[in-house]
Write a protein that binds this DNA or RNA. Sequence first.
DNA 1: CTAAGCCTTACAGCAACAGGAAGGTCAAGA
DNA 2: TCTTGACCTTCCTGTTGCTGTAAGGCTTAG
Lengths: 141, 141
Amino acid sequence: MNISEAAKLSGLPAKTIRYYESIDLLSPPQRSANGYRHYQKADINYLCFLRQARQFGFNIEQCRLLLDLFKNPQRRSTEVHQLVSDKLEEVDTHIRELGETRDLLAQLVGACANDEKAECAIIDTLAGQQEQGQILGESKQ
Amino acid sequence: MNISEAAKLSGLPAKTIRYYESIDLLSPPQRSANGYRHYQKADINYLCFLRQARQFGFNIEQCRLLLDLFKNPQRRSTEVHQLVSDKLEEVDTHIRELGETRDLLAQLVGACANDEKAECAIIDTLAGQQEQGQILGESKQ
DNA sequence: CTAAGCCTTACAGCAACAGGAAGGTCAAGA
DNA sequence: TCTTGACCTTCCTGTTGCTGTAAGGCTTAG
């Protein structure tokens, strides 16, 4: 099948499939006489695998490792487990950091008068704890 | 003061300061006779403001808007409030999505035997589904 | 014969910088 | 005076994971 059919079956854009090939994440498929890429069932499986892995948040290098494991009948499940555990930790860290940011933003939102005046606690906070009378950005030319 | 001093005081790398200037986030500073950038106190305040805003997760365009408000004594705090509220919502959405990913990853980790055998529920899951929304919990093995 | 709808490659661009090359400037020390 | 090292400058490339667009070739239907 041609690339657009592979794209439809795998759920990945044709562009992305070509891109994965260009970075050697996928091995080059067969080509028809006219130069068109020609995909087979196994290729579709790899593409689906990659789409899923990307949806789970794995980056390209992690996908490369996972795909290698997928293709390797001699793999040990503990290797896969390790990769996914690491990713889980990574995502947890990210969530924690974002949570802190969210709380800070919520504080800002709560502190702002939200009215027609220029005075704004958010601006003051972002500007840093300047001394009174020295709130810059409003002073000087 | 020169750029390295401005960098030290603002907490931003000199590279970043030049970058902000190059994208017109900062207006070009004065130059000394030798061509060196020369910063003043107000510039440092803008830099600090931008560093803070970036730390709060605002992207460059949002920083641009915030900085405009910062510089504008005729601003209404409600405008600032709106920007920050939007950002808060954005971050909340992101956290929710990441949370879903995390839960799915945790399910994968829990489902894997984590041993020396090749059989691996994670691999099966990543390979198995071709339709979205069918990520976990299907029988199939 | 032409138009559409595929396919190909190759280059540009997104965010938000970081790294490095190549070269100019400045202050201090031998 | 010369040299060294620490600054500074601009310009170019690379990062991640694609997406958009251009310019052109192939295929099929009318």
